[in-house]
Computed example of a mutant assay.
Amino acid sequence: MKDVTNNFLETIEPIYTPGKINFDFEAFDKAIQKAVSELSDEQLGNLEYNDIKKEITRYKGLDDKLDAKRKEISKIYKNPLTEFENNLKKSRKPLRELVDKLRAKRDEIDNHQAMLRADHVRAVFEKKCNLAELDKDTFKDKYDGYSLKKYFKGNKIELKKETIEEIDALVLAEYDRLEEYKANIDMIKEQARDYELPADPYVRTLQNGTPLVEILREMKKDRDAAVERKQQVEAKQQAEAARLAEIEAMAKQAANEEIKAVNAETGEVIEDTKPVEEEAVKPSEPYKINLSLTFAGGEKQWHQFAKLLEDNFINYEIKGENK
């Protein structure tokens, strides 16, 4: 490439020769102080209206004259500066265009190199994911970060040793995380089998980020609740079976009491047997007991039991309910 920078371009620069503006500020300040002291507040109070107007004209004229001179000097200084800036802007335009072209070419090369680095990083991650039996796009969001020049050796498309070690650590950590996740799912499924619970809801809870210990604790609560419900159902069933058995026994007893004696040879019903007479002669004495009953089947079961008592002429007294 031809060297377009020569000694002249490298050394040329504007040269400013400062000018000097002569003005005796010290004498000016003294004169101003003297004028101010001659026109104190008390002296101003003694001046006539026309005298005040004359003093305004006098000092305003002096101030205007000084400001006009300032503007004149400013113009003398400003015009060369404006001319210099306009000429320099025009002369710098080709130089700026050249710099822009060079930057565009540099950016083109940088972008190409960045693309090569990104492809290399992607290939490294995919290879390591394949070895660890991970999805090849697991670290897709890491590619751009590791494509920076600081992770590569000099101008080579080759990762530094410490960069590779860092990538290995990321892959290993993800592998361990997935193994732990799989083990957690297996534990949930095994616990679900032991507790006779469906595993899918708890697996979804794990997928949503809930810690395993909380899931296992919830599974135990659900298991305990299911056991309690089962026990309640069994108790209800047992109570119902006992009630039916009692009804059946009482029905059999009633039926037996109604059976009359029969002559074995003739089949004739014997109306008055001695045991019956004795039973009639000896009426049973009332028998009273105090019970506290709990009906697992609820109020409905109590009403059924109460009807049974009434059907068998058993008197009862309610001392209280749900105590």
Score class of each variant (00 low, 15 high):
Ser91Glu: 09
Arg92Trp: 08
Asn86Glu: 15
Lys71Phe: 15
Val99Thr: 10
Leu88Glu: 13
Lys69Arg: 12
Val99Leu: 14
Arg92Leu: 14
Gly61Ile: 03
Asn86Tyr: 11
Lys65Val: 03
Asn86Gly: 01
Pro94Leu: 01
Ala104Val: 00
Phe84Ser: 05
Lys90Leu: 09
Arg70Ser: 12
Lys71Val: 11
Glu97Asn: 12
Pro80Arg: 04
Lys75Cys: 02
Tyr59Pro: 05
Arg70Ala: 15
Asp107Lys: 08
Pro80Ser: 05
Lys75Glu: 07
Leu88Ser: 15
Ile76Glu: 15
Ile73Val: 10
Phe84Trp: 15
Leu88Asn: 14
Arg103Gly: 00
Lys93Phe: 07
Thr82Cys: 09
Arg106Leu: 10
Leu88Asp: 06
Asn87Met: 05
Ile109Tyr: 12
Ser74Asn: 13
Leu62Met: 04
Arg70Pro: 08
Leu66Met: 13
Val99Asn: 09
Lys93Asp: 08
Leu62Asn: 03
Arg70Val: 14
Leu88His: 13
Lys69Tyr: 15
Lys89Ile: 00
Glu97Lys: 12
Phe84Ile: 00
Asn111Lys: 05
Glu108Thr: 07
Asp107His: 00
Lys71Arg: 13
Asn79Leu: 03
Thr82Met: 09
Asn86Gln: 08
Leu81Gly: 01
Asp107Gln: 04
Ser74Tyr: 08
Val99Lys: 15
Tyr59Gln: 10
Arg103Gln: 03
Asp110Asn: 09
Gly61Trp: 09
Glu85Tyr: 13
Glu85Ala: 05
Lys93Glu: 10
Asp100Trp: 03
Asp110His: 10
Lys60Trp: 14
Ile73His: 03
Lys71Cys: 05
Arg96Pro: 01
Lys93Arg: 10
Leu95Met: 06
Leu98His: 11
Asp100Gly: 00
Tyr77Asp: 08
Arg70Gln: 12
Asp100Asn: 03
Lys101Ser: 13
Leu88Ile: 02
Ala104Tyr: 05
Lys75Gly: 13
Arg70Thr: 12
Leu88Gly: 04
Ile76Asp: 11
Ile76Cys: 05
Lys71Met: 08
Leu95Thr: 00
Thr82Val: 04
Asn79Thr: 09
Lys78Ile: 01
Arg96Gln: 07
Asp63Arg: 08
Glu83Gln: 08
Leu95Trp: 15
Lys105Met: 02
Ile109Leu: 12
Val99Pro: 03
Gly61Glu: 07
Glu85His: 09
Lys75Asn: 14
Leu81Ser: 07
Tyr77Gln: 04
Ala68Met: 07
Tyr59Gly: 02
Ala104Cys: 00
Arg103Asp: 09
Leu66Glu: 10
Arg96Thr: 08
Pro94Asn: 01
Lys78Leu: 06
Leu81Val: 06
Lys89Gln: 11
Glu83Phe: 13
Ile73Arg: 05
Ile76Leu: 14
Ile76Met: 15
Tyr77Leu: 03
Asp67Glu: 15
Leu102Arg: 06
Lys105Gln: 13
Glu72Phe: 07
Asn87Tyr: 11
Ile76Gly: 13
Tyr77Glu: 06
Leu66Trp: 14
Lys93Val: 01
Leu88Pro: 06
Lys78Ser: 08
Asp67Met: 06
Asn87Lys: 15
Asp64Thr: 11
Arg103Ile: 00
Leu88Tyr: 15
Leu62Trp: 04
Arg96Phe: 15
Asp110Thr: 12
Lys71Asp: 14
Leu102His: 12
Lys69Glu: 14
Phe84Pro: 13
Lys93Leu: 10
Glu97Phe: 06
Leu88Arg: 12
Leu81Arg: 07
